[in-house]
């Protein structure tokens, strides 16, 4: 079955399985990225299962964000291949939504919440199409999903960190994609926001979409995710959380930086 056929089948409401790895929402082969002399990401192979919630985990400087950006074509890769839904990136960009790190932008930028969410409709609006009422209504609906509809006309500089993160998620929802790539969506947010975000991500999964997060909080991995990719420049392990998120693999990923005592306290899947 090719992709078009799969799409037709899923539109018709049929449950379709994605057994072939080439049809994976995100497949990387020997992906290497380098900013200077040392590679930030070295020869990583990974296949994200369709309709999964996948966490990318590793210590600071392990290349987690870089991996995500290379998969999106934002940073150039030195070698290797990225296939999205079995096709080269350029053909399938409209099927991917991206949530960058909140701290990567200047929140003092002169714009309103609703304008940021409307940026998610860029591919539809293009250079010169006017923003019509139905575009605005869709943006507001996305804000409602993250509980921020009342903030549509606020200047973005007036938001708290958690609210900013929800706006970024709303913008990604406006992209109406099948693959969601999020860079540290839970970093530095309040508990209410964390709950709101994970609820939205779980609802995306329930809608047969695929979610991939760069994640830093080891304590929540087993609760939030079903698939995990452990990296530290190189790939350490990849697979279902139940079999891959183990003390042994974590020790390999974090080395001496993660005390054994700390691992013991983690909620690991029952061995």
């Amino acid at each position: 079955m090719n992709n078009a056929a799969l799409e037709l089948a899923s539109e018709a409401g049929e449950r379709v399985s994605h057994p072939a790895p080439t049809d994976s929402p995100l497949a990387m082969q020997e992906l290497t990225v380098s900013y200077g002399e040392k590679p930030a990401v070295f020869s990583i192979d990974a296949t994200v299962p369709a309709e999964s919630m996948t966490a990318i985990i590793g210590p600071n400087g392990a290349g987690k964000s870089t991996l995500l950006k290379a998969a999106l074509g934002i940073v150039p890769r030195l070698s290797g291949r990225v296939m999205v839904f079995g096709a080269p990136l350029a053909h399938v960009m409209h099927r991917i939504a991206y949530v960058p790190q909140r701290a990567s932008v200047d929140w003092d930028f002169p714009t309103r919440v609703i304008d940021v969410v409307l940026m998610g409709l860029y591919r539809e609006l293009g250079l010169l199409h006017l923003v019509r009422r139905h575009h605005r209504e869709r943006a507001v609906a996305c804000l409602e999903r993250v509980g921020m509809a009342d903030f549509a006309d606020r200047q973005i500089g007036q938001l708290s960190g958690g609210q900013q993160q929800r706006i970024f998620l709303a913008r990604a929802l406006a992209q109406n994609a099948e693959l969601y790539l999020l860079d540290e969506p839970f970093a530095g947010v309040d508990a209410a926001t964390e709950k709101a975000i994970i609820d939205v991500l779980k609802s995306l999964k329930a809608e047969n979409r695929t979610v991939v997060c760069v994640h830093h909080d080891l304590a929540t991995v087993t609760d939030y995710f079903d698939h995990v990719l452990l990296i530290n420049v190189r790939k350490i392990a990849e697979g279902p959380v139940a079999t891959t998120f183990t003390a042994e693999n974590l020790q390999k990923t974090y080395g001496g930086r993660l005390a054994t005592a700390h691992i013991d306290q983690l909620k690991l899947p029952a061995a």
Binding site: V105, F109, L127, Q175
Partner: peptide, 22 residues
């Protein structure tokens, strides 16, 4: 005027702009 939208978007968030093909 013509490049307003991509200019604004990439000035605010270059990473996201790259990810939507700008």
């Amino acid at each position: 005027v013509i490049f307003w939208r991509p200019l604004k978007l990439s000035t605010f968030d270059e990473g996201f702009a790259g990810a939507v093909g700008i």
